[in-house]
Design a protein around this nucleic acid. Structure first.
Lengths: 253, 253
DNA sequence: CCTTACTGTTTATCCACTAAACTAATTAGT
DNA sequence: ACTAATTAGTTTAGTGGATAAACAGTAAGG
C-alpha cells in the first residue's frame, strides 16, 4: 500500500488525493476546513471569474484564512486544479432504460457533457493535456463505453468512438462558451464580426472565408455544429457495426 | 486607419502586430532585434522545453538582452504567444490538383494539421480559447473551405465541417503528442497503464473501462482514432451532399 | 501532566510580468 | 554641422503568485 509504482510521475500526489480516502488523523487540533470545502470554493471562483482568478490566496481568503493554510490540505495548486476538474465534471447521468438504443444513450451522453462544459467553462482550459483522472472523469468514460457495450465494436473501437465524441463536444464547447470578462473571452459572434473586419480588405486572399463570415449570423450555428459532429460519429459507429468481421485497417488515403 | 473599432477588446494589440506591417521608424538607433527573430526564438524554446519555459527573461536571454528589451518589440507576453501561434502553424500546404476530389483535399488538409500539432505541441495549450487569429491561421481555414467549394454545402455547413474536422485533429493530437519533460506530459501508453492500475481494484465500478484498458496496447491506436474521426466527418459531409435541398434542421433527439 | 502530532500563522524566497526613469545612439531639420 | 526629437536598450522598482521553513498554539495519548 505504501509502495506505489510511480507511473504517474509528476502527478502522484494528485492520484493520492483523488483516489485515497483521507487517513483521519488522531492528535492535534481538528481541521477547520476540508479538501472538499476548498475545492468547492475554488470551483465557485472559477465559475464566476475564470480559472485565472483562482489563486491560493484568493481561495484562502474565502475562508478568511492565510494562503499557507491551504497547504495543510492540498500539496499545491496543480493538485487543487486536478481535484477541481474531477469534482467539476461530477458523475455522469443515467443514460436511459434498457430499451434505449446505443445511439440514444450515446447522444444523451454527449449532450450531457456539453452542458458540463457550459456549467464550468474553465474545465476547457484545465484539461488541455493528457493527465491523471479521478473517479468522476473515469465514470464518464465508463458510461460512454457502457452505451456501446451492446454493439459489435471491439473494445479499442469503443474507446476510439468515445474519445472522438468527447473531443468533439469539448471542442465545440470552446466555440460556444463565453469566458468571464477580461481573459480574452470572445463570443462566437464577436469573433465572426471582428475577423470579417480584418479580412474584408483582403478579399483576394480569403474569398471563401469572407463568404462564410458574411452569411447571416445563423441562429443555431453552435447547435448545428454540435449535432453535425455527433451524428457523424454515430453514423461512423453504425457503419462499423454493419460491416462484417474484417479488421478496421481501412483509412482511404 | 487610427480609429479601429475595438471589436477585439483585450486582443487589439495582438491584432495590430498580426495584421499591420511595422511602421518603420525614422529617428533613433536602429533596432538590433525584430519581432520576427523574437517570435522564432520563443517558438524554438517552446518546441524544445514546452510553453511554460517561455518567459520574457528566457527569450531575451537568447539574445543576451535584458527582459525589458523585448517590450520595445511586443507589448506583452500574451501578444507574443498570439504571434507564436500564427507563425507556428505557418501557411497551409497546397491541397492538390484540380482533379482531386474534395475528400482527398480535405483529408490532406486534416493530416497536414495533424503534423503541425506534432511539430509544435505547445500550440495545443496555447489555443484553448476563441481568440484573434492571424493571417496564417485564417489561411488554414480558407484552405479547408476551398476544399469544400465544389460541394453543394452551404457556407455555414462548410464552416461547420471545417471546424469539426479541425477540432477532431486538435483533440486527437492531444492524446498523441508527448509534452517535454516535467509538465505532466504522459504518453498515451503511460496513461493507460497508470489508469488501469488505479481501477483494477474497482472492477465493479469500471468494468467496461477495465476491459478496454486491458486490451493489448494496440500499435496504431492514435492513427485509428485520427482516421475514424476524419472518415466520420467526411462521410457526414457526403451524406449532406447527397441529400436534396431540404434545410439541415434535422438532429434526431 | 507532559509528550506528540497536528493546525494555522508568520516570515521569507523565488520567479515572472511590467511600469517608469534613465542613458546612449541616431537622424531630421535647420 | 548643430540641435532637438526620437528611439534602443538598461536599470530600478513594484506587483502578484507559489511555496518552503520555522513557529506558536491546541488537542489528544500515555
Amino acid at each position: 500500500m505504501a509502495g506505489k509504482k510511480p507511473v504517474f510521475g509528476d502527478q502522484a500526489r494528485s492520484v493520492e488525493l483523488l483516489w485515497k480516502e483521507a487517513p483521519r488523523a488522531r492528535r492535534g487540533p481538528k481541521p477547520t476546513l476540508s479538501v472538499e470545502r476548498i475545492v468547492e470554493a475554488a470551483i465557485a471562483i472559477a465559475d464566476e471569474h475564470g480559472l485565472a482568478a483562482v489563486s491560493m490566496e484568493r481561495v484562502a481568503s474565502e475562508f478568511h484564512f492565510t494562503t499557507m493554510a491551504l497547504y495543510r490540505y492540498v500539496p499545491g495548486k496543480a493538485e487543487l486544479v486536478d481535484l477541481m476538474i474531477d469534482w467539476g465534471v461530477g458523475l455522469p447521468p443515467v443514460l436511459g432504460d434498457e430499451g434505449d438504443s446505443w445511439r440514444t444513450k450515446l447522444e444523451r451522453w454527449a449532450r450531457a457533457l456539453w452542458s458540463v462544459f457550459h456549467r464550468h467553462p474553465w474545465a476547457l482550459e484545465a484539461t488541455h493535456r493528457l493527465r491523471v483522472m479521478g473517479p468522476c472523469e473515469l465514470a464518464w468514460l465508463e458510461a460512454g463505453l457502457s452505451a456501446l457495450a451492446t454493439t459489435r465494436l471491439t473494445p479499442a473501437e469503443q474507446r476510439t468512438a468515445c474519445v472522438v465524441l468527447l473531443g468533439h463536444v469539448r471542442n465545440t464547447a470552446q466555440f460556444s462558451v463565453t469566458l468571464p470578462r477580461g481573459h480574452g473571452g470572445l463570443t462566437n459572434e464577436q469573433w465572426g464580426t471582428a475577423t470579417r473586419a480584418l479580412i474584408q480588405d483582403r478579399a483576394e486572399d480569403y474569398p471563401r472565408l469572407l463568404a462564410v463570415l458574411s452569411a447571416p449570423p445563423s441562429e443555431g450555428a453552435q447547435e448545428d455544429t454540435l449535432t453535425f459532429g455527433i451524428r457523424s460519429v454515430l453514423d461512423g459507429i453504425e457503419a462499423r457495426e454493419a460491416r462484417p468481421k474484417a479488421p478496421p485497417r481501412a483509412g482511404r488515403r
